[in-house]
Simulated scan of single mutants.
Amino acid sequence: MSGAGIVGDMRLPEKGLGLALEILEQVARDDRGASAADIARAVGAPRATVYRVVNSLVRDEYLVRRSDFSGFLLGTRVLELAAVVGARTRPAHADVVDRLRVHTGEAVHLFAFHRTGLLVLDEDAARPLSDRQALLADPTRSAIGHLWLVAHPDRQMPQAPAWAREVPAADLRPIHEAYAVRGYTEQVALLSSDRGCLAVPIHDEAARPVGAVALSTSIAGLSVAARHVGALREAARALAPLGSLSGW
Rank of each mutant, 00 (worst) to 15 (best):
R65F: 03
V78S: 05
H114I: 00
W248Q: 09
R99L: 09
I175A: 08
A83D: 07
Y51L: 14
A206S: 14
L24I: 06
S2M: 12
V50H: 00
R101C: 06
E22N: 09
L118I: 10
L232C: 07
G3L: 15
L119N: 05
A199V: 07
L118H: 01
R32K: 13
A34Y: 01
A164Y: 03
V224Y: 08
M1L: 14
G105T: 04
G8Q: 13
G33P: 05
S142P: 00
R65V: 09
G5K: 12
D30K: 13
M10D: 10
P209E: 10
S56R: 13
A180F: 08
F69L: 15
H103S: 12
G33D: 05
L110Q: 00
P241T: 07
A107V: 08
R52Y: 09
A134H: 06
L129P: 02
L81D: 10
P91S: 10
R173N: 10
P158L: 08
Q156F: 07
A48I: 11
D9A: 14
D60S: 14
L149D: 06
A4Q: 13
V54W: 01
G3F: 13
I39G: 00
E166Q: 15
L135A: 09
E106S: 12
I144H: 00
H228Q: 11
P139I: 03
D95H: 12
T185L: 03
E186G: 04
A92H: 06
V188G: 01
V108Y: 01
A214G: 06
R227Y: 09
P174M: 07
L24E: 02
A94M: 08
F111M: 03
V213R: 00
Y184D: 01
L21K: 05
T49L: 14
S223L: 12
V97K: 02
A112C: 13
A164V: 04
R66I: 00
A162V: 10
A162E: 12
P91M: 11
D60G: 08
R127G: 03
R141Y: 01
R141M: 10
D194T: 14
V58N: 10
V7S: 11
W248F: 11
I202G: 00
P139M: 05
V150M: 05
A238R: 13
F72E: 01
L242N: 03
L79K: 06
R165E: 09
A34D: 00
Q187P: 00
A126Q: 15
S192L: 09
H203D: 08
A240W: 12
P128R: 11
D9S: 14
R41K: 14
P201L: 02
Q159L: 11
A4M: 13
A112I: 01
R208S: 13
L12D: 12
A137Y: 01
G44L: 01
A36I: 15
Q156H: 13
P161G: 07
G5H: 13
N55Y: 07
F113M: 06
E205I: 02
L121W: 03
T140E: 11
V27K: 00
D68G: 05
A82W: 04
G16V: 02
I6V: 14
D138Y: 12
A169H: 07
S56D: 14
A240Q: 08
G211A: 05
V78I: 15
L24N: 00
R77F: 06
Q156A: 14
T185Y: 00
V167F: 02
P241S: 08
D138I: 10
L12V: 10
L110A: 03
R195H: 11
D30E: 13
A20T: 06
I144L: 06
R141L: 14
L63N: 04
V78Y: 07
